[in-house]
Design a protein around this nucleic acid. Sequence first.
DNA 1: GTTTTATCTTACCCATGGGTAAGATATCAA
DNA 2: TTGATATCTTACCCATGGGTAAGATAAAAC
Lengths: 225, 225
Amino acid sequence: MPKDAVVSPSHGKAFADRRRDPATKREAVLKTAAQLFLEKSYGRTSLNDVAERLNITKPALYHYFRNKEEILLECYRLGTNLIEEALNEIAAHCGTGLEKVEAFIYSYANVMTVNFGRCVMRLDEGDLSSTAFTEVRNYKRKIDRRLRSFVEEGIQDGSIAPCEPKIAAFAIAGALNWICEWYEPQGALSAEEIASQFVRTLTQGLARNKRRNGARGPVNLGAQE
Amino acid sequence: MPKDAVVSPSHGKAFADRRRDPATKREAVLKTAAQLFLEKSYGRTSLNDVAERLNITKPALYHYFRNKEEILLECYRLGTNLIEEALNEIAAHCGTGLEKVEAFIYSYANVMTVNFGRCVMRLDEGDLSSTAFTEVRNYKRKIDRRLRSFVEEGIQDGSIAPCEPKIAAFAIAGALNWICEWYEPQGALSAEEIASQFVRTLTQGLARNKRRNGARGPVNLGAQE
DNA sequence: GTTTTATCTTACCCATGGGTAAGATATCAA
DNA sequence: TTGATATCTTACCCATGGGTAAGATAAAAC
């Protein structure tokens, strides 16, 4: 286990006072848990780790959550809510399919730089119980279908070049989801910078000039075109 | 723990005979281990699980590997070798930067549909010891730098539109790495189909028409352009 | 055959960590 | 002040799973 370090200033303050304030304490638990899950993964984060960072003991956590998995599920839910909000905002302001996709990329990229948003894609669904698992899975499927419909819409209205919507959506989603694997809050790249560059790269492509032929077969390695 | 199912025909045959043939037995262990790691994750796969699928018992595994982590590390190494080979093939046949990137996308996408290749990106590096961790990390960094250099080369020779190579490389790598999260060997999409579509989507972009202005600021949600 | 060696099994050890029992201590309402 | 309640701690239980010890059995060497 290599990485540890970084003792966050954290929300330990929430438990300094023993005054009854369950809401903010619960929130503090979730924030530090999410932080630790992202640092060390869910499986390698013990409830003792969470408690320790909050300056309390493990059993105290059970006042706010039924078990470890409920903490995980809450992280997922808070994250998916962020995505939900972004999607609603996009749906409200309509435009061409391409514009919707652009808005999606921008919003989604930003969500992937927020801890709870990162949890949604970076943590392992397999750690959830089967009911929670299907809940999260259905939600993700919904997002994917939403993006795919934007692409289809763009092909219809002519703003997007003909392509396989399923695969195109996977490519976009992949690029975006991967952000939460390499993004670091203290890093050189700001969320907005990443988001806008992603919009450009994914919609405009790398190539300087549009190719004349629409589709392309398998690339012949080293074929000089 | 939701998903189990799929009792693979597997390489249980390798241990049917007790004849001394360490090489193929070791290979059988690796293949079934990789399979299980991808199905259930490394953490949720016990050595008993691996042994059971091979019709042997746990301690027998210790004849071929020092410990569980060594099995994991071997999966990583076999996977990175696949990528290495692909990269060498590309480096050998030179062309424009864009052509190299295209070749990279195509080869890499294919590797992501092979079990050992999937292991490299899908399994959790955090399960490795610190020395193995840095080994794998350095290797991944090397791949990333290689891709980034292709992009930079393309910008130089004019085949790729000006952009931030670091972010562009991340976008491409993300889309590709994500393949191993959703690809299923028995699924509707073939590896080649995915690979060639990815080449098109990533290099040509979604948009039907090239935008006149090169860079783009943050998208105004719902702004009618 | 007999010995040697690789292979594999049964039986076990023990550290980790989720979860609980039972009681202490502070807060709040009266 | 006093009881009731929420909050938190110390001490514990126990299932899981990596790893080992010691011995059985079969293959190869002689």
